[in-house]
Design a protein around this nucleic acid. Structure first.
Lengths: 255, 255
DNA sequence: TAGATTGTTAATCGATTAACAATC
DNA sequence: TAGATTGTTAATCGATTAACAATC
């Protein structure tokens, strides 16, 4: 039974280098939210903010926020709060958003287009270096973004662009069945960081980090909660009816 | 300083009803992966799978997988493994994917279109009941999906569709500045579950659950890791150079 | 100084892991 | 029976929380 040996590089690398300077992954995952909200506040002209206010705006508790920020350093002022712009900059620096990262996007369907036209990318230090697709209908067409426009190139040119322009991050927005091939091309081209939007688990070498985004997970988690809201007991038919046999369940399965 | 009091309903509700039958959130978040991989295996004609094989295919450890599955019940056979189809069905049932959930999608840009045309939705028990937009250019246009096609309706008709067709879940794929208004309309229309793809934190009543999907977070987390890969010490200029003053940092900020 | 708010502590909670007894 | 693999245990690890001393 030759199972396809696909296996996602399990991931998150021991977050930082050494001892006490490592930032917990849970914190890293929240920093982008803080950063976005701080940016929005700065644009509104807000100068200072307390941990309580910022936490509320980010949908977390102030204790959690202060703990998170404490890993970055002491950027607040007791009795006063945080300077919005300054704190935003520190978070950006910590996340590595102050120097630009070259990004290549493979797969120019609706999702690829949605990503490319997302203003938040450019403003956060991500620079799209190329758009690729394997479908002849799409290759050669033009995708207009805010300030630029891209001509879609054939996937064959991926390695060339990565090498010549020094891309760092690959984004996969292809259908599921194309994703593994694209991942391999990205690895061969020398990329070590991949964001995978395709609904498959990718098999890559361990020195490559894949982050997976599943557009449907949250919907499914919500379905679970909706179901629990209606039937708080859970899947507990089993518990209430010990008579119900496994074979009974199999019938339901085929119904 | 009247900060907009936006605050995301902090969320995850004490996962299940009562005592021992609650499934950890971390487990719930992984069930969709297991489900998808099992579905793929079933399509390949695979009949049984061991926790080791399935775990590898899902990119988790077998210990974690078995622990996760143990919350659902005892669906494996010692010495043998799990029946692919049967286990897939049990997970689907647990997630609430066996009976259909009505979904309304507001915001018909590239992202909205990408979501609607995602085959995985229908096959997982999600039924799209309506597509909405507020932009007159888009309203009235037609979006073709695999087996159906939708006419985009004005947001004003949202409540009507939710009421008439019994929608359960709202999906927001609008630009950031429209999202809060849409969320309020959804709440008023009677929805309790919202998936928010817009890059803002929504303010909703506590009995409404918002799940946020941020297309840019993983990219930012990767940037952080890429940076650490290059400079394993971290943002440690601070630690190495106690001389560096905060004001120096402020200069860098404005550079 | 008095009031406010940070940064840190220590206790709690939940999630992960390895190992193995149960059992097919 | 012997070999294989589950389901569960207990130990470890990491994340959250509340409370408060430090300090603006």
């Amino acid at each position: 039974m030759p199972l396809p040996d696909f296996r996602e590089s399990a991931g998150p690398l021991p977050c930082a280098g050494g001892k006490g300077n490592s930032i917990p992954e849970a914190t890293v995952a929240r920093l982008p939210i803080y950063h976005r909200v701080l940016t929005a506040m700065a644009e509104q002209g807000i100068i200072t903010v307390s941990s309580e206010e910022l936490a509320t705006a980010c949908g977390v508790t102030s204790a959690k926020l202060r703990k998170d920020l404490s890993y970055l350093g002491s950027y607040g002022t007791r009795g006063v709060g945080y300077e919005v712009e300054f704190l935003g900059y520190q978070i950006a620096r910590e996340l590595g958003l102050t120097s630009p990262w070259g990004v290549v996007v493979v797969g120019v369907g609706n999702l690829g287009r949605a990503l490319v036209s997302y203003r938040g990318f450019a403003s956060r230090g991500f620079r799209i270096l190329g758009l690729f697709d394997s479908h002849p209908d799409v290759v050669g067409s033009t995708v207009a973004v805010v300030d630029r426009s891209f001509t879609v190139r054939p996937v064959e040119e991926l390695a060339e662009v990565v090498a010549d322009q020094g891309a760092h991050i690959g984004v996969i927005t292809t259908p599921a069945d194309a994703a593994q091939d694209i991942a391999e091309r990205m690895v061969k081209a020398g990329l070590h960081s991949i964001v995978n939007f395709a609904p498959v688990v990718l098999n890559v070498p361990t020195d490559v980090e894949v982050r997976k985004v599943d557009l449907a997970v949250e919907l499914q988690v919500l379905a679970f909660h909706e179901q629990r809201r209606k039937n708080p007991a859970g899947s507990v038919v089993t518990e209430l009816d010990p008579q119900r046999s496994v074979s009974g369940d199999r019938k339901a399965m085929n119904a």
